Amino acid sequence: MRGKVGLVIGLGVGYVLGTRAGRERYEQIKLQAEKVWNLPPVQEQVGKVQDAAKSALMALPTAVWNSAVKVTRATTGSSRTPGERLDAGLDAAQDAADDVAAAAEAAAADVKKRVGSVDDATDGK
């Protein structure tokens, strides 16, 4: 479905940019595109994609917060020398970056999975 949509968009953009029909034809194309965009089935799919993205991205602030706490705990404490605290902080920061990256990848995979199911649902219509 994404390939089909991309092809149609590409053809439309190429036509609009390459045509010499002028502003009137551009306005006609723009009006038709707005009509299609505002169709209830299209807006339903847009809503599904937005909801999927929002729910998947809600996990990121938790991962960032937990990572910040790990780094803070690793760099504080008077029982270690400043060099040991720095080393511990760097190690914790690397682990935290890996955790945030993993959370972001999981969120992206979740959105991609949900968007794929939206594509599958529209292919059957």
Rank of each mutant, 00 (worst) to 15 (best):
E24L: 03
A106E: 14
R23S: 13
R23I: 15
Q43Y: 07
N38V: 08
G12M: 15
R23E: 15
N66W: 04
Q45S: 03
Q28S: 15
N66F: 04
Q45P: 01
T72C: 08
K35R: 13
Q43L: 09
R73M: 05
S55K: 10
G12P: 07
S78I: 00
V49A: 12
G22K: 11
A102Y: 14
G89S: 01
A102L: 09
G89V: 03
V13L: 12
A96T: 01
V100R: 00
V49E: 06
G10T: 00
P61T: 14
K113Y: 08
A63N: 06
V111M: 01
Q32K: 11
N38L: 11
A52K: 09
P61F: 09
Q94N: 11
T81S: 01
G83C: 00
A107Q: 02
E84T: 01
L7Q: 09
Y15F: 07
L31M: 13
A92E: 07
M58H: 12
R80W: 00
E105Y: 10
G10M: 00
Q45I: 02
A63W: 03
A59N: 13
D51M: 12
T75C: 00
V118G: 14
T62G: 14
A33S: 10
V115H: 04
L57Q: 06
V100N: 00
K30P: 07
G77K: 00
L17H: 01
R20W: 05
V111H: 02
L57G: 09
V46S: 06
D99K: 04
K54W: 12
P61S: 05
R85T: 01
G14W: 15
A108T: 11
V115C: 05
K112E: 01
V100T: 03
L39D: 04
K48R: 10
G89N: 05
E34Y: 14
P82R: 00
E84D: 05
R85K: 05
V16D: 13
A106Q: 13
V42L: 04
D98E: 13
A68K: 01
G116Y: 02
V8M: 13
G6Q: 14
L17P: 07
V36N: 12
L57D: 04
V115E: 02
R114F: 07
A104G: 04
E24H: 06
G89P: 04
L57H: 10
A68Y: 02
E34C: 10
I29V: 12
